[in-house]
């Protein structure tokens, strides 16, 4: 359905994509990569917005460059806040619908799309929208012409946890309706649940692609860092009970301003969480805060490379 074969793209001296190959079929394909890894460039190549310097891009068995009929089948949500602040939401979606749909259908399609994304606009101008509302509006504008392929570039950026959850539900719903979705993020947990396939991109190249479980297995090889915040004596107790466990690589006490934190690294996070939970419960330890520091995708990719 979507195939990139040995595709390269450079902007002057900066190589954005280098011999990148990947494919995506029906479902939700998550593009995971740190900022600047080439995710947006890949999307623009798929949409035919950019010419590849080398390699082949095929979308729905067609070449996307100068292919106006293919654009009719694609909906795109960019990572930017690309909206006219002076417009009203419905007006914005309708105006974009009119670029593709017959005039008489555009109004109805815009209403349907706005309803679908769960946006209550009530005549407000876009400048008064919250970040979450703007993201929904962008998706409404992207799906207003009923695309077969929906490309979402960093759709979770700036959303609060509820907004993220709603966005995931919306993407899953669109997938259920037969829309193929490409979604990018630099945060692992935003993609792993909803994706049917994942592609890891780093420095313009595909590191791995496949079902999320496989990708997560690869990522799990990276030593995870888990940070605990608690009174110092509680942290001492915790470290004393964990230090002889095989699953623990290192234990470090780290000063954070006036507090001292405990940082533990492990190669096997799943086992570690169950052991740590057991130790905390059995010893009745008071843990104030637990944070997985390896969510920083940059460090994972550095490790994988």
């Amino acid at each position: 359905m979507i195939e990139l074969t040995e595709v390269s793209k450079a902007f002057g001296d900066v190589v954005a994509i280098l011999r990148l190959s990947m494919s995506a079929k029906n479902g939700v394909t998550g593009f995971l990569g740190p900022n600047g890894s080439g995710k947006s460039t890949t999307f623009k190549l798929i949409m035919g917005e950019l010419y590849p310097d080398d390699g082949i891009v095929r979308v729905f068995d067609e070449y996307p460059i100068n292919n106006a009929s293919l654009k009719r089948r694609i909906g795109y949500v960019s990572e930017h806040e690309d909206l006219y602040p002076w417009m009203k939401g419905k007006q914005f979606v309708t105006s974009l619908a009119k670029l593709i749909l017959p005039r008489e259908q555009a109004e109805t399609a815009a209403k349907e799309a706005i309803k679908k994304v769960g946006l209550s606009v009530k005549g407000k101008r876009i400048k008064a929208y919250s970040k979450g509302m703007k993201q929904r509006l962008k998706i409404a504008a992207a799906i207003v012409h009923h695309p077969d392929l929906l490309i979402l570039d960093e759709p979770f950026g700036g959303l609060d946890p509820i907004g993220r959850r709603d966005m995931k539900e919306l993407i899953s719903e669109l997938h259920q309706e037969g829309v193929t979705v490409l979604v990018s993020s630099h945060i692992l947990y935003e993609l792993d649940e909803m994706s049917t396939r994942m592609v890891l991109i780093h420095r313009g190249q595909t590191l791995a692609e496949g079902p999320p479980a496989e990708i997560l297995n690869i990522i799990d090889q990276f030593p995870h860092q888990i940070l605990f915040k608690a009174p110092f004596n509680e942290l001492q107790q915790l470290s004393k009970h964990l230090i002889d466990k095989d699953i623990v690589n290192t234990i470090t006490f780290k000063r954070d301003k006036i507090d001292i934190d405990l940082v533990i690294t492990t190669d096997n996070p799943n086992s570690f969480y169950s052991v740590a939970t057991q130790v905390i419960a059995e010893n009745n330890l008071l843990i104030k805060h637990l944070e997985v520091q390896t969510d920083n995708i940059e460090s994972i990719f550095e490790f994988l490379v």
């Binding site: 917005e49 654009k71 694609i74 960019s78 930017h80 690309d82 974009l96 670029l99 504008a141």
Partner: peptide, 20 residues
């Protein structure tokens, strides 16, 4: 200029060819 400042060029390029 409005499209450039509001970054809406990206939306338009996703629906229209550049010459359009």
């Amino acid at each position: 200029a409005d499209d450039v400042s509001n970054l809406t060029t990206e939306i338009y390029y996703s629906k229209l060819e550049r010459h359009e």
